[in-house]
Design a protein around this nucleic acid. Structure first.
Lengths: 218, 218
DNA sequence: GCAAATTAATGATTTATTCAAG
DNA sequence: CTTGAATAAATCATTAATTTGC
């Protein structure tokens, strides 16, 4: 309906490769071909052009000295705020929860936390998710660094200081409750980034984009 | 306004620790404190009880010899079909895209791919995401293993086989196009997992839970 | 005092590793 | 054993605090 040429072109281009795949023995499954060849027609309904390297593949040097031109699109990339800037209230709550033992909140918890934290500033679920991940990791490495650097005594992390004590409490709680690899089923949703970089730089109430993905598992 | 007792209790408990956090000298940024204390009242509106260890926190030792009780929730975790079982068509398309150079599709791409692959079987966005990630990583390690072990390894897979060749092609394409760390803004949404594990184990049309998170960035 | 340059902190992604289903 | 799924580690990138020069 929308794309004819482009989509078709790509698929036809790729198809030989795919059939090649059938020719050269594939590791798995010569693949009973149902209406797969029909795929070409069906699948062509989305724009494949954007799939294969959406950007022209600029090699981004991490330490590039060029101060200008930080991003691939020269300008107007991120209209408003780029990254989450937590408020004191939000940080406070998060730390509190962390200290309470929360390490990797599940989807439901994230949803609720986000909802609450949203009262103190813009926030999304992924921010909460990231925060816990980062905080956890950084506490961990902080502890490691402390245990290694503070003298040589492998005994305890440190004698007793407010900071150390506080930290240790968190860590211990952490250790106690968090097991590596507890299975948690998380469903994600994705968002396109710079499609319609429309207009105003003013921030508005960017509503938190959370939703109940599976209201229930049927 | 809503919850008084539970929330208040927890928050008051935690508050001293929190102020401790302010006390300990931070390397940077004492960070101006706004109306943080007010947080207590407002935030108490959600049930903290469920936040702090939703399960009773059974200690799972990572290398514990106990074969039972792998996860924190002892039972009833995954109701029906657990993990995605890709069909041949789906794999074919994914490999095609991969061979075409796609490595880490962005949100929009994932959305579209998922939509298309959904025609051949149940699938979610995260499956696509995971597939690319796993495929990428495993091709990489396969290549590494091959390049290292080809000299002397007693019994490997055949040194040069169509399969190997095929693999190599993918890798090369891969290397060419993918730069480590290209920034991509992805917005996630979370789903509660085991809230209402209602009933049937039979799988039905579990609709793909994708949605446009930010229709546009304001 | 103020604004540019520096630096520390940390939000956001990617990669590596691991677990477990089939 | 293969591979989907999830977490941990490493890393990039941006923002806020601090420093510095005027």
């Amino acid at each position: 309906m929308k794309v004819h040429q482009l989509g078709r072109g790509f698929w036809e281009q790729q198809e030989p490769l795919l059939s090649l795949g059938c020719k050269r023995l594939r590791p798995l499954a010569p693949k009973l071909h149902s209406n797969f060849t029909d795929t070409t027609t069906t699948v062509s309904s989305f724009d494949l052009k954007s799939f294969i390297r959406p950007d022209s593949g600029p090699r981004k040097l991490g330490n590039a000295p060029s101060n200008e031109n930080r991003h691939s699109p020269p300008v107007e990339t991120h209209p408003g705020g780029t990254r989450w800037n937590p408020t004191q209230e939000q940080i406070g709550i998060l730390e509190m929860l962390y200290r309470g033992g929360m390490r990797t909140p599940n989807a439901q918890q994230i949803e609720q936390i986000t909802e609450q934290l949203g009262k103190y500033g813009k926030i999304e679920g992924k921010n909460v998710f990231y925060w816990f991940q980062n905080h956890k990791a950084r506490e961990r490495q902080k502890q490691k660094r402390n245990s290694l650097g503070l003298g040589h005594c492998p005994r305890k992390s440190a004698p007793i200081s407010p900071l150390t004590w506080d930290t240790r409490v968190e860590i211990i709680t952490d250790r106690e409750e968090d097991s590596p690899y507890k299975r948690k089923c998380r469903s994600w949703s994705f968002e396109e980034e710079e499609i319609s970089r429309s207009s105003s730089k003013e921030d508005e109430n960017r509503t938190l984009e959370l939703f109940p993905l599976h209201p229930e598992r049927r």
